[in-house]
Each structure stands twice: as structure tokens, then as C-alpha cells.
Amino acid sequence: MTHSFYPWLAPSWKQLVRGWERLPHALLITGEPGIGKRRLAEFLAQYLLCEARKPDHTPCGECDGCRWFLAGNHPDFRLLTPEDQSDAGEGEEAKTKRKLPLIKVEGIRELVDFVNLTPHRGGSKVVLVEPAEAMNTSAANAFLKMLEEPPQGVTFILVSHHWRRLLPTIRSRCRVFPVPTPAAAVAADWLAGHGVVNPVQHLAHTGGAPLAALDDARAEWLPLRTAFLGHIANPAALDVLGVAAELEKAKLDTGLVVDWLQKWVHDLIALGLSGRIRYYPDWRDDLARLASRAGNLLGFLDGLKESRRLAHHPLNQRLVFESLLFGYLEALRGKPRGTGHG
């Protein structure tokens, strides 16, 4: 696994190692989604558990500790992710997919035993929580005491895409370690190395996060998005009901479609007011055609935010899409719905 360490994480790793003797017992790794924070956290965990660390500050990959870790069953390592709970209902996957992934309090309570027992290998113990904001209120609160003063040798690594959603009491107990979004050139090179045909474009779609861009390039829904953008680029010919039905049939995540639309509207407004495009440079002509009406869309953007907040609720998808698209059309026609301005 050491060989697949992403190139842009190297400076972050160096920075971590440089302050090694001051490594805190609770580290909060933050950054945009899709830039390899989880990988960095795992690398750190492996390094902590490695029993024969190499002088160049990488885990050896050969000792018992490393081998166990790589096989995913190191007794002194715990991974807390929301997937743990959701794999129970595999049969009805469509249903579980819509649920908000949460880390529940039971997972944290099991940790108490793990943390307070002496380690199996006599070395350190590592707990990785990813993403930390997935802990629900009671889980986060139950975590507090443990996080503040764990026994000797226990390290908590929290990974968070949106650290602002964490409880302030959690945040204050951790040392924050921000991972920067990689430079576009580095990310594009890496993507090209992974056989992505048009790296710059995919990077733009995801706002510069390379792993997310890789997903973007390989996603099954790629043609669907192209079709969707094609539809909304021609509002005059937009068949709202048809498009909504199509999207629903594809069984996409509501949040994903809201995200597409949000980025599209963002581009429209940004182009109309300042002449910049961030996400969809490949649609420049269509965007430019609609951009003159950009000012009307600000109200619609508020509505989109609300939909994003509700994306995990079990609402009727088709109705959500229909209402969003109708809202979009109305906004373009200059009749912003009565959402609060400013």
C-alpha cells in the first residue's frame, strides 16, 4: 500500500513527521472531500502501529504490525465508519442508500473497552473515525471524555470533510491538521497517469479534488449527467416531467443531482456577474447563452441549498426533481419564488 501513496500528500506527511515528538493523542484531519485524507490517516495509523519503522519515516510493510494492518485485522486498530451499520440491510440496498450515514453511540461505547485495555502488541493503539461529522449527537457526546484523556499510547485520528459540523467540544479536544487541496497540475498529472482521458475537465467538475475527479471520470452516471446538463442548458425545450422520471429511474442519489444543479447554477451566476466558470468549463457556450438571466437565479440557489439539506430525507425523488426543475425554469423566466433574499 505504501507504493500508492498519493504524490500531493507527501508535503503533508512530511509536516506530520516533522512534529513527530509532538504528535497529539487526537488529530483532526480536515480538507475538501476526495483529496485522500483517509489515505493519509491510514498511512499514519500504519506508521504508528509499525514495529520496525524505516528511517525515511515510512512504515516497513513487512513486520507483523504492518502485515496485520494491511490485511485489515490489526488487533490494536479500530476503524469507525458509518458503513459498519449499513451493511446489515444489503438486500434492500436501494433503501439503505437513502439513509443518512451515521456513526451511532453503540460504536463509541464499544471503543471504551478497546481503549482502556492494554494493547495486544505492547505498542500503540489507533482509532480512526471517518468521517467524524457522521457521529450523531449522542455518539459525539459519548466520545468526549475518551477523546480528552485517553490512556497512554492511544491515538485518535479523526477525518472530517466539514469540520464545522463537528461539536465545538470535539473540535477543541483535537489538534487540527488541514490537508490542502492539491495544485491543479499535480492532480492532473496523477489523473492522467491513471488513464483519465480529460483530467483538467474532471478536476473542474469536482472543484480540484483528484480522487473525486477519478470517481467522476469513472462514474457510471457520467452519461446521465451529460444528458441532464444538456436538458437544463435548453430551458426552452426542457421537459421537466420526462427528465425527472429519467433521473428517478436511474436511482441516483438525490444529493448528487442537487450537486450537479447547484454547480450549474453557480457557474451561471458567476459567469453572468464576473465572467468566471468553475465547474463546467466544457459547457461554456450554453452557460454564456443563459448567463444574462443569472441575476434571477440567486433566489433559486437558496432553494437548492434547502434541497441539499434535505437530500437524505426519504422524500419522493421524482417530486423533488420536478420541483427543482420547475423552480429553475421559473427562476430563469424571472419569477423568483418567495424564498428569503439576503
Binding site: 475538501e32 466539514h162 464545522r164 459540523r165 472543484g207 450537486d259 447547484q262 454547480k263 453557480h266 451566476i269 458567476a270 456577474l273 464576473s274 468553475r278 465547474y279 440567486l298 440557489l301 441549498k305 441539499r308 439539506r309 439576503g342
Partner: peptide, 16 residues
């Protein structure tokens, strides 16, 4: 937190 990413949220606020 509800914007596609923070840059977008920030610039959109300014554009608003």
C-alpha cells in the same frame, strides 16, 4: 457547509 465547496460558497456570497 451547504455549498458545493467552500470556494463556491464564498464567491457566491460576494456575488450576491
Amino acid at each position: 457547509p451547504l455549498a458545493p465547496d467552500e470556494y463556491a460558497g464564498f464567491t457566491m456570497t460576494l456575488l450576491r
